[in-house]
Design a protein around this nucleic acid. Structure first.
Length: 215
DNA sequence: GTGAAGATTTACT
DNA sequence: GTAAATCTTCACC
């Protein structure tokens, strides 16, 4: 039986975070839930966090703690952390120690009904029906919709794990226009780092979290 | 052990 | 537009 395997390998992730953030655009994030349901979404928005000098990175100054350990592990390791006590963000470690890429938005492809369910479970408006592009258009929204939490996904190796991985999409137009702009929600890092063009998204896609000024 | 801050999102005025 | 929700992680005592 001929089986095409588009799963990304270690080599793909073994590049600096800036490059990895660009390479991940258009790729397919696949998540298999415990009950066997498979969810898929196209990555349409990323941000890079190189660490080291970058004050916005959790690994600023090569700070190393038990929580950010995955960013120092091999490239392609999932780093899921909690923020504001109730939301998760999903990152993938890159080649430089302490560097990684934050996934800010995906475009739902498969398992949309399940995503609706997972996403609304947490809030009051349970009967509300979200449009597809509203399901995963934010770093914490995509974690909710895809059932990604610190407990079940942190430190997973995306090259080896069978419940969470990324594939290339042969049908994705390679010539899609991408936009380079500034990161979001990191004003505390100061104007120098907050204004770096470290956010990337697919131009014209309806599932991005926020429009930015093209740079 | 105690305190302060946070890579966000929803809900309400 | 502004405020509230909510709790882990880290820094320091």
């Amino acid at each position: 039986m001929a089986r095409v395997c588009n799963k990304l390998n270690r080599e793909f992730f073994n590049v600096p975070s800036y490059d990895l953030a660009n390479l991940l655009l258009g790729k397919i994030l696949i998540r298999k839930l415990d009950n066997g349901t498979v969810l898929k979404g196209r990555i349409v928005e990323t941000e890079c966090y190189p660490g080291g000098e970058d004050k916005a990175s959790t690994t600023y100054g090569n700070r190393r703690t038990p929580a950010n350990e995955p960013l120092y592990m091999q490239p392609g390791t999932a780093y899921v952390y909690m923020t504001y006590g109730m939301y998760h963000c999903f990152n993938i470690s890159s080649s430089e120690p302490g560097g990684g890429v934050l996934l800010r938005a995906v475009e739902p492809l498969d398992g949309i009904g399940t995503m609706q369910e997972l996403r609304l479970k947490k809030f009051k408006q349970r009967n509300k029906v979200l449009k597809e592009h509203e399901l995963c258009n934010g770093p914490s929204k995509l974690c909710l919709s895809m059932g990604v939490t610190k407990d079940n996904c942190n430190k997973l190796d995306l090259c080896e794990n069978t419940n969470l991985w990324i594939e290339t999409d042969p049908d994705f137009a390679k010539d899609s226009k991408t936009v380079k702009t500034t990161r979001i929600g990191i004003d505390r890092a100061g104007p120098v780092w907050a204004n770096k063009p470290f956010r990337f998204y697919i131009f014209g896609n309806g599932s991005i979290s926020k429009q930015g000024v093209e740079m």
